[in-house]
Design a protein around this nucleic acid. Structure first.
Lengths: 212, 212, 212, 212
DNA sequence: TATGAATGAGCGTTCATTCAT
DNA sequence: CATGAATGAACGCTCATTCAT
C-alpha cells in the first residue's frame, strides 16, 4: 500500500487486510475516524470529534496522522485494496465458466459489504471528498474492479451463458444490488452471511439472465 | 407542505410539484444550492458559495430562506413529494396485475432518476444531514414509497406472478438498480429515456422472477 | 498600487500616500496592525491581538483583509511607494549638482524615517516575512531606491564633487545612518525635524567626502 | 555568565568567548538554532525546525536547553559578551588618542560583524524577543558598548581631534554604518576583511570630522 | 427586496512543552 | 543521553448567522 512508508514503526500493514494495530494511539484514532466518518460524513466530522471518541487529545491525532484528509485517504485506500484483493482471490479459485466467475465475484462482494460494512459506506459516500491526488491514486484500482465484473458478464453474454441484452446495465444492476447491502444490512439481524450470498448470487444470475 | 407558511408572498407551492418561482431571487438561490449541494455535499458547501453562484449577496439568501438547513430540507422535501406523486399517478393508470404495477413503478422511478438526477443524488446522500425534525417529517413518505414496492412484489409473489424466493431482497435490488441510474446516467449520453425504462423494466421483472 | 483592486468600495488609495480611510473598520485594523507588527514583529503578532486593539472581532478583520499576510504586504507596499514618491519629488526640485541631489535625497529620507517611523521599521524588519509573490512585486522598487542613491554618489565621484574612494560603501553608510533614525528617534524628543535633516545632510556629505 | 549553572557537565563556558562544545548534541542544537533564528526570526522558527536541522529529536533539545527562549538568550548573551570582550581588547592595545581609539573600535566592530555575521543579525533583530529578565540582564552590557563609542567621540570632540558638531549623531551614524555590514556582507565576496576595516575606518573618521 | 458590516463559534493545524522510559 | 508519545493552548482562518439600513 502506497502509504506504508508513512506509518510509524510498530504499525504493520499488508495488502491483504487492514492495519494491524500495535499500541493504542494510532489505532484508536483510525477506529474513531472510521466510525464518525461513516456516521456524519467527512465534512460533518471534526477532528475534535474523532479525538474525543478515540479518547485522545487533538494533538495526539497529529502525531499519528498528518492530516484529516490523510485519515480519510488511508481508510479508503486500505479498504479498497482489501476489496480488490478479495475479488482476486475469489476468482483465482474458480475456472473460466462465466456463471462460476460471477458467483465468485458476488460472493466476494457480498462478504465484503457485510464484513466491512462501514468502510464500504465510507468508500461510497466520501470518495468525492478525497483530494485529487488521493483520488487519482485509487481511481485505477476502482476501474479495475469495475472491469472484473464487465469481463465476466461480457464473456458470458458472448458465449450465450448470459442472455441479457444489455450487459452493461446488467453489470450496473448487479453491482448496485450488492453494494446496497452495506446500507441496510444489520449485523445483529437474522440473515446469515451464507444465506445472503446465496440470495444475491441468484439475483445476479437472474439479472444476467443465466440459463442453466 | 409543512414549510408553506415560510414562503414569502409571491411564491407558489403545491404538493404535486416544485415551487413555481416568481422573480429571480428565490429561484437563483434554490438552483445554486441544488447544484452545489450535489457537487460538494451539504457540509462541504458554504452559504457563501451558494450566494456567489446565485449572483446574490449573502443576506439575500436569508431573506428567502431562514437557514442553510432549511434550504436543504426544502430541496429534499420538494423532490420527495414529487417522486411520491409521480409514483402515485403511474400506479393509478394501471390495473392490479403485479407485473403491470411493477412496470409502472419502474418507469416512474427511472424517469424520476433521470429527470431529477441531481435532486435524486442529494436526497440519497444528504438525507442524513437533515435535522431530526425535518427528517422525521419526511420519514413517513419514504416508508410509504418503500411500501409501494413491497406491496407489489409481495402481492406478485403471493399470486405466483413473481417466483422470487425472497421478495424483500428482490425489492431492494430493483430499487438499488433503479436508484443507481442517477449516479451514472449522463444526460448528454446516447441512451434515451424510453430505452432506459425498457431495459430496467426487464431487469426488474427478471429480479422478481416474472414468468410471462 | 497593485492591490488597489482588492480594496472594498469606500477606501481610496493613491500612489502618493497611504490609504485614506472611510469608516472605522478597515482603518482601525490597518492602524492596529501597524502598531503591533512594529512592536512584536509579524510572527509575534496574532490576528487576535490586532483585532483586539482595533476594537473589532476577529472575523471583522477578515471582512476587510483577506489574510494576515495581505495586511503586512499592504502596509509595506503602501509605505514603500510613499517613500519612493517622496524621493522622486525631492529630486525633481533640484538641478543636477550631485551635492544638491544628495542633500535632497537625505532630506526626503530623514523626513520619511521620522514622519513614518513605524512603517520604516516594519519595512526594514518584516520584509523577509513577505511571501515570495509580495516580496518580488516590491523588490524592483527597492532596487530603484537603491539606484537613486548610487546614481548620485557615483556621479559625484566621477565628477570629483565627492572624493570618497569607495562610493558603494559611502552609499551604504549614508543610507544606514539615515535609516537608523527610525530606530532611535523619539517624536516627543527635543530634536526638530529640520535640525535633524541638517545634521544628517552634513554627515552624508562628509561620508561622501564632499569638498565645497 | 549567568546561565553557567544551567550548563550540563562537559560544556565549558567563559566570559571571554563562546561555549566550547564537548560532544555533538548541545552544539548541533545551538548551531541549528543560530542558522534558523537568523533565517526566519525567533517567532518564525519552531523548535521542531531546529531539532530537525540539528538531526536530533525534539526531546534532545530539551535535555540541553530548558526552553526555546533560553536558546535565544544564550545565543545573544554569548555573542554580546564576545563583542564586548573584543572591544575591550582592542582598546587596551592603543593609547589615549581619540583617533586611534576610534580606529580600534571600528576595527573590532567590523571584524565582529564579519566574523560573527549571523549572531550580529540575530542580536539586532531578535533583541526584542528576549523576555524581560534576559533582556535586562544584557541591557547594561549594551549600554556599556554604546558608552565606549560615546566616550571616544566626546573626548575627541572636546579635544578638537574631531570637529563634528553633533557627537551623538556622529556616534550613531558610525555605529549604524558598521552594523549594517552584517546585513550585506557576503563572506564569499571579493572584499577582504582588512580592506573592509580600512574603508570603514576612513568613513568613521570622516563622520567624526577628523583632521589629521 | 436587498445589502454591507459585523459577530461568536468552530474549523484544521501547529505550537512549546512534558514525561515515562 | 535520548527518545516516542502525548498534551493544552494558541494559531490563521471560515463558518452560519444577524442586524441596521
Amino acid at each position: 500500500m502506497s502509504t506504508a512508508s508513512d506509518l510509524p514503526p510498530g504499525a504493520v500493514h499488508t495488502r491483504a487486510g487492514p492495519v494491524i494495530p500495535r499500541g493504542g494511539g494510532r489505532d484508536a484514532i483510525t477506529g474513531a475516524a472510521r466510525e464518525i466518518f461513516a456516521e456524519r460524513g467527512y465534512h460533518g466530522t471534526s477532528i475534535r470529534d474523532i479525538a474525543k471518541r478515540a479518547g485522545l487529545s487533538l494533538s495526539a491525532m497529529y502525531y499519528w496522522h498528518p492530516s484529516k484528509q490523510h485519515l480519510l485517504a488511508a481508510l479508503i485506500e486500505e479498504s479498497t485494496y482489501d476489496y480488490f484483493h478479495r475479488c482476486d482471490e475469489a476468482l483465482r479459485e474458480v475456472g473460466d465458466d462465466p456463471a462460476d466467475r460471477l458467483r465468485a465475484l458476488v460472493r466476494a462482494t457480498v462478504e465484503y459489504r457485510v464484513q466491512r460494512r462501514i468502510e464500504s459506506n465510507i468508500g461510497a459516500q466520501e470518495w468525492r471528498n478525497l483530494e485529487p491526488d488521493n483520488r487519482e491514486r485509487l481511481a485505477g484500482l476502482r476501474r479495475s474492479a469495475t472491469q472484473l465484473w464487465a469481463d465476466i458478464i461480457d464473456d458470458g453474454a458472448a458465449r450465450g451463458t448470459f442472455r441479457c441484452a444489455h450487459p452493461e446495465d446488467a453489470r450496473r444492476s448487479i453491482v448496485a444490488a450488492c453494494n446496497a447491502i452495506a446500507q441496510w444490512y444489520e449485523p445483529a439481524g437474522e440473515i446469515g452471511l451464507p444465506d445472503l450470498v446465496e440470495r444475491y448470487t441468484e439475483i445476479a444470475l437472474r439479472i444476467a439472465d443465466h440459463r442453466g
